[in-house]
Nucleic acid binder design. Structure first.
Lengths: 180, 180
DNA sequence: TTTGTTTGTAAGTGTGCACTCACACACTTC
DNA sequence: GAAGTGTGTGAGTGCACACTTACAAACAAA
């Protein structure tokens, strides 16, 4: 007995978030996740109910990490005005997605929302983050909306690789966005 | 000779945008596109260089339609202040993506930017739209950025189906967005 | 009518991948 | 040490799908 199943599940989930983030649900074979986690494909299928179950579990882990980071960021800030807390939350989020896996996973998850189970976990994830922002920061509807709009803009910037584009239109889109 | 190859290509591209929009690049078999276009799979492969070539051509068609709609919207407006033109552009875009195919295709394309050819066509598409907004509306960098941020927010709203969610956080995110 | 070109397809081929199953090893309990 | 339980894998199986090829029919030019 080298490890417990629960510990393996955590390892596999980390590998899954990273693998799915890069190549998406359909183009990522579970052999790739298994290899990254250092175990056999067969055991991944014993630990999770199937490829879809694995993806959904990875999505839950992804959103949990995001929500936690935002919460910690909000706790750290001194001031308590909505603007200050929102800014701290944005900063914490920017820090978290510096490695891009969590950001790209969200993009991939949004692309396969035609699968009902995935649509559900995506909604649950954004519900968690949105209520957190609304409740913890005391932000207005418009502020919450703006927070998410510029968050989604980061998705575009990263997927299209706009930081690398020196042209003026790309500079306009990336201006002031915290280091993605 | 029932039709010309060029006319067929147009038919196939319309079918391709619609099919790829729903299920994405990897999960859409070209048989599905062929069936939607009413021709055989083999002929699709003669009309386009492969599945990737088909997707890239569909992306070009998609962005061309978006740019054209925005341009027409800008032409229609009476006023000439950046705010008025931007508003008209936003309205034209909202009208165009009412059927969701063009919006979902963008989401799917952004999800497969790990394929260099697709990353390139996505950048080209956004370059076209961004320079159009910047030049035609005379918008500032911040205004262009805001235009795209709220455009991307629409992607989230539609993919997550937030219009159907009656909870307050979802209402906050969808508030004031023109009928997606 | 013959020859050539373009449009179109039916029927493969090969490969990648989700998922299974029989089996083996580690560790515990009695 | 025997029996049971949890951890782990190698070797399949079957199917979906990207892409090819050989062939046929429509049309044009001679």
């Amino acid at each position: 007995m080298r490890s417990t199943a629960e510990a393996r599940r955590v390892t596999v989930l980390n590998a899954a978030v990273s693998a799915f983030a890069r190549t998406g649900f359909h183009a990522t074979p579970v052999t790739a996740v298994a290899a990254a986690a250092g175990i056999s494909e067969a055991y991944v299928f014993r630990l999770f109910s199937g490829k879809l179950g694995l993806f959904v579990a990875a999505a839950e882990a992804c959103f949990a990490r995001i929500a936690e980071a935002i919460e910690v960021g909000a706790d750290r800030v001194g001031g308590t005005s909505p603007e200050e807390v929102l800014d701290a939350m944005g900063g914490a989020y920017a820090e978290l997605i510096a490695d891009r896996d969590l950001l790209l996973f969200q993009v991939q998850a949004q692309a396969v929302t035609d699968i009902p189970e995935i649509a559900e976990v995506v909604r649950a994830g954004y519900r968690r983050v949105a209520t957190l922002v609304q409740g913890r920061a005391g932000a207005s509807d418009a502020q919450v909306q703006q927070f998410f709009a510029y968050g989604q803009l980061c998705h575009l910037i990263v997927t299209a690789g706009l930081e690398q584009v020196p042209e003026p239109w790309a500079r306009a889109l990336t201006a002031g966005i915290r280091h993605p």
